[in-house]
Amino acid sequence: MLGLRFSILAICLVLSLQWIGPVDSKICQTHDNKTGTCQRVRDCPALKSISDKLINKIPLTNKEEILRNCVLPCEKQYTLCCEESLNPDGLKLLKENESICGSFGEPKDRTKYRPWTALLEYYDDLQHGRRFYCGGTLITSKFVLTAAQCIKDNLVSVRLGEFALGKTPDCLLLGNHTRCLDRPVDVPIEKVFVHEGFEENIKNVRVSNNIALIRLKDPVQFNDLIGPICLPVSPDLQLESQTVKSLDVFGWDLMMQLNGYIPRWPLYELLESTACNIQDEKKICIRNSESYRYRGDVGGALVYPSQYNGRQLLVQAGIVSVDIVERSDRSLTEGTDVSDFMGWITETIAKKD
C-alpha cells in the first residue's frame, strides 16, 4: 500500500509540474486533464466532502484519498482546481447546433449579423399593452439565456428575428434594392429557470448568480434571422472566453426606452476583476470603450469571435447585468461569466419537467 501511495503521489507531482495555469483565467485543468474551475474548498462539492470527513475524522475512500493528494492549486490564494462536470444530455443538445451556432454576416449586412439576439416581452399594466425591457440569447431551439434580474411575473413571451423596433415590416435599402424582412416571431414561454443562488440586494449593492434560462413553449425554426449563439462548451473555449481582450454587445438600448430602431454594437474591454472591485469569481469586469451611456440590454450577450471546429463564429462569454454600484469611472460595469455556469446551463436544459 505504501508503494502504491508513493506511485500516486509521484504521478501527481509530475502532472503538477507539467501543468501551467492561465494567469488571468478561472478555468483550469485537473490532474487527470479534465476541465475545472478555480474554487475555494467550500465551493467545490468533491473537495468539501473530503474536507468535512477530515474535520470529523471519518476515513476517506481510496478515490477520495487519491483526489486529496492530486488536487492542484490555482494561482489565486486559497483556491484549488475543482472539476466542472457538464450534464452529458445538455451538452449533447448544445453540440447539435455546432455547425450553425454563432453565425454572423458582414457588419454591412446587419439583418444577419446577430440572429441569436432575443427580446423579452412584458405586459405593462400602466400602458395596457406589451413592452420590451430585457434582452436574451437563443442557445437552442427551445431555450433562451438571460439575466435572472429579467425574470418577472409579467414576462409573457420572447421575440426572435427582430431587427428594427417600431417598424413593421422591417425594410432596408440595399444598394438600389429594397429588402423587406420576414416578420419577427413572438414565442410564448413554457417555464423559467432562475439560478437557485440568485440574490439581488440593492441595499448592500450585491447581485449574485445573475443568470436564468427560459424554456419556450414551442421550438423555433432556424433561418437567416433566427439562430443559436455558441456557448463555451469545450476547455479551449472556456479558457479563451475568460482571457479574450474585448467583447461585443448587441442590443436596442431598451433601458433608455428610445425605441432603438437600429441595434448598436459598442465594444467592451475585458478587465481584471479588481478594476471593478469584484469579489464574486463568477462575474466579469468590463469597460465600455466607446461611451458610458450605453451598456447594452440587460440579459443580452457579451460575445467575441473565435475559430472553432474549422469555422469562424461568435461565442457568448458574458451576460449584461444591471450594475447597481455607483462608480467614479462610469465606463466600468459588471457582467455574468457564462463559463462559470456551464454546468448549471447543461443540467437545466436537460430537464424534462
Rank of each mutant, 00 (worst) to 15 (best):
I319V: 15
T61P: 15
C82H: 13
G251K: 07
E75K: 13
Y304R: 06
D182W: 01
P263V: 14
N69E: 08
T243E: 13
N209P: 02
G102S: 08
L80M: 14
I55S: 00
R206P: 02
C81M: 08
K112W: 01
V338Y: 10
V23Y: 02
L181Q: 00
K351G: 00
V23E: 07
Q39N: 05
L302W: 01
C28A: 03
P232G: 11
T348I: 10
K142C: 02
C171K: 04
E75S: 06
L314H: 10
L17E: 02
T111F: 08
P305C: 06
D248Q: 14
V144G: 02
T146D: 07
K217D: 09
Y78P: 01
G3C: 13
A212H: 15
L172R: 01
K108L: 11
S339M: 07
P59H: 11
I324T: 08
L165S: 05
C230Q: 06
A301Q: 07
L172K: 02
P169Y: 05
S85N: 13
G197V: 09
S7E: 11
I8R: 01
G102I: 03
S7R: 11
S49G: 01
F104L: 02
V233M: 14
E334P: 03
I211K: 10
Y113S: 04
P59M: 09
G166D: 00
G175W: 08
T274N: 14
G318E: 09
P169G: 02
D218W: 06
L93H: 08
V249P: 10
L173S: 06
G310P: 01
G343M: 03
V194C: 09
G296S: 09
L91M: 12
V14A: 03
I319D: 13
S291H: 09
N56S: 13
W344V: 14
D43Y: 06
K95D: 11
L314S: 09
D297S: 10
H128I: 02
D337M: 10
T137L: 05
L225E: 09
T37G: 03
C74Q: 03
Y123G: 05
V194G: 08
V322A: 09
K351E: 12
R68Y: 14
Y122D: 05
A317M: 01
N87V: 08
D218K: 14
A212M: 13
K63A: 13
N62P: 00
S328Q: 12
W116R: 04
G129D: 13
Q238E: 15
I100Y: 07
N309P: 04
Q279N: 15
V187Y: 01
L332S: 07
H128D: 03
Y268R: 03
F250I: 10
E83P: 12
G129V: 04
K217H: 13
L314F: 13
D170S: 07
Y133E: 08
R183G: 00
R68H: 10
I11K: 00
E64D: 13
C276L: 14
